[in-house]
Design a protein around this nucleic acid. Structure first.
Length: 293
DNA sequence: AACATTTGACCAAT
DNA sequence: ATTGGTCAAATGTT
């Protein structure tokens, strides 16, 4: 049924793209087009995201072996003893427009930063602010992608037991900024939805925003398949199909690009949306640079 | 004063 | 010896 979610996302993405194409032929408001493009980008990112997690599941057994063997060893790792063993990890990829990647509804406190071998960008380590007051053991790692500086890879580990005692009027615990991330760059900060809605002047835009709410719910309720915490680079887990590719990040990013382009291109007809956005690189560039500047 | 961040040291695993 | 994750003192911010 996760597959159905992906298909649903892609179908709606195509529908939105078609609508955008019609808008472009006529003289629609720029804002309305921007929102459509944002939605399309977000939908495809969601779909890619979902698919990549399915791939992780496929590889799960291969990756699992090592740590299981290790668990039988006599050595234990430090004080994490209590819940030790197989910790669950959630990973999500946000765009650079997630101006504040940390703003996921929880309060985090940075406790470390490391240069990672083979990576250009350092990895930041965050723990829940309520670690000591409420014994909330959730942690996360944030690392800017080397391949695409506009992408942040965030790895979550451990469950929040703090019930998210907010220090600020921010989203509910289950809300992520992912769904609305494309809108953030324009705005002044925090109140993303409120920044967007005032520009909902045309009917087109209003419909899009309604869709947006639906998408947010879909994405929010989509349950990513957790997988065991492994030594294999989690960044590559997201983008690679096989282990060989994981070891050569240079090829992996282009790998997924080609996959997606192949999926999008359905013919030579220039009038189709598919060919209009036949190159993902341009596609992404449109979303990130041309869109808001 | 009470937080948060930075950053080198420390530790476990390999 | 190397690496990734965490600690904690120093420093910064509110």
């Amino acid at each position: 049924m996760e597959e159905k979610l992906v298909i649903n996302e892609l179908q709606q993405g195509k529908e939105l793209a078609n609508r955008l194409m019609n808008n472009l032929k006529q003289t629609s408001s720029i804002d309305s087009n921007k929102i459509l493009i944002s939605e399309i980008l977000r939908i495809y990112q969601n779909a890619i995201f979902m698919l990549s997690f399915n791939n992780d599941n496929d590889n799960k057994n291969n990756l699992k072996r090592k740590s299981e063997i290790n668990d039988k060893g006599s050595k234990k790792r430090k004080k994490t003893t209590s819940e030790n063993k197989t910790e669950k990890v959630k990973v999500y990829v946000g765009t650079g427009q997630d101006k504040n990647v940390n703003d996921d509804g929880y309060c985090w406190r940075k406790y470390g930063q490391k240069e990672i071998h083979g990576s250009i960008n350092p990895r930041g380590y965050y723990r829940c602010t309520h670690r000591f007051t409420l014994k909330c053991l959730a942690v996360k790692q944030v690392q800017k992608s080397d391949e695409d500086p506009s992408i942040y890879e965030v790895k979550y580990r451990g469950e929040h037991t703090c019930n998210n005692i907010n220090t600020s009027p921010s989203p509910s615990p289950t809300t992520t900024n992912f769904s609305v991330s494309m809108f953030e760059k324009r705005g002044v900060t925090e109140k993303v939805e409120e920044d967007v809605k005032p520009m909902a002047k045309t009917e087109e835009v209003i419909i899009s925003l309604d869709d947006l709410e639906n998408k947010k719910n879909i994405f929010r309720t989509f349950s990513f398949s957790n997988y065991e915490y492994e030594n294999v680079e989690w960044k590559s887990n997201i983008f690679s199909e096989n282990l060989e590719e994981k070891l050569s990040p240079a090829t992996s990013s282009s790998g997924i690009t080609n996959e997606i382009v192949n999926g999008l291109v359905s013919g030579e007809n220039y009038e189709t949306v598919d060919s209009y956005f036949s190159n993902l690189d341009n596609f992404v560039e449109v979303g990130q640079d041309w869109l808001w500047s």
